[in-house]
Amino acid sequence: MILVAYGRQVDCAYVFGEDVGFGGVFRCTTGLSDRFGKQRVFNTPLCEQGIVGFAIGLAAMGNRAIAEIQFADYIFPAFDQIVNEAAKFRYRSGNQFNCGGLTIRAPYGAVGHGGHYHSQSPEAFFCHVPGIKVVIPRSPQQAKGLLLSSIRDPNPVVFFEPKWLYRLAVEEVPENDYMLPLSEAEVIREGSDITLVGWGAQLSVMEQACVEAEKDGISCELIDLKTLIPWDKEKIESSVNKTGRLLVSHEAPITGGFGAEISASITERCFLRLEAPVARVCGLDTPFPLVFEPFYLPTKNKILDAIKSTVNYYSSYDKSSPVHQHTLLEKNHLWIYAFNALDRRVA
């Protein structure tokens, strides 16, 4: 439906992918081909590398190419086209050419029974590639605004859609054309004790954890990153400067996940302000397992536990001190610790 809004507006938009002509496996493009014609909305052969290559060519000629990869798990055959071609099109030609009209949509994430090849969250691979943007919406409303921005953005965008959104999320989506800015994170819940950063489907799990934590008197600030690269470091930084604590959560395996990048950057920027190590609650370092999915996922309670242990980081060393009011001693400890570290860095 988002694509309808877009198609109405722009003549040079094309939507294509495997089975897209008759609606796609998630019915995202239902009716689109009847409405805009088979020349604008069409099926492609089953060849992801070909789909993205075609889309790059189309975009390089000044069109808006909206390519669908049926599942994010199947984006890897197109990895070369995305990494070596789309991402470097502008740079390698000294901006003579670009494929900024390219948007690649792909459903990602857990669904409960997807096993290895219908569950993965491959966003981190793409965040390692200068030249493309990576955008992930959390809700239907967000999806529309962010997708329209991605399509119109003069840079190639990989747009991952949380699969669970397709079936579970129901939300009023404005009929009109609206865009939500890229590279701008949003505080979706204000709080003062700890900052939580996430994206896509994981935000609703994190939100539940925030609600539970509140019952224990912990005030959580929840931020939707929305655009993973280039990301809104400043908003996270200012939030962490306020709360002094950070937790990042994503479904993808923890090692080398985008949480690691956030953690490192914020540690660099907020080192003196951090009152506990940055916590990461993520998928485990295994392929996505079928039967063990509930064990693999970063669940509400895993997040809640991490919120508590992060907030209680110091009191777990000094039982006498209340959580929210640090004693002078603790503060001093903190500073001494920090200066030691600074010294080390200077040396």
């Binding site: 029974h113 997807g114 096993g115 290895h116 219908h118 392929p287 397992p289 079928l290 039967v291 063990f292």
Partner: peptide, 8 residues
């Protein structure tokens, strides 16, 4: 060992 979807 239950790791993949049915029929694999």
């Amino acid at each position: 060992k239950g790791k993949q979807m049915p029929i694999h």
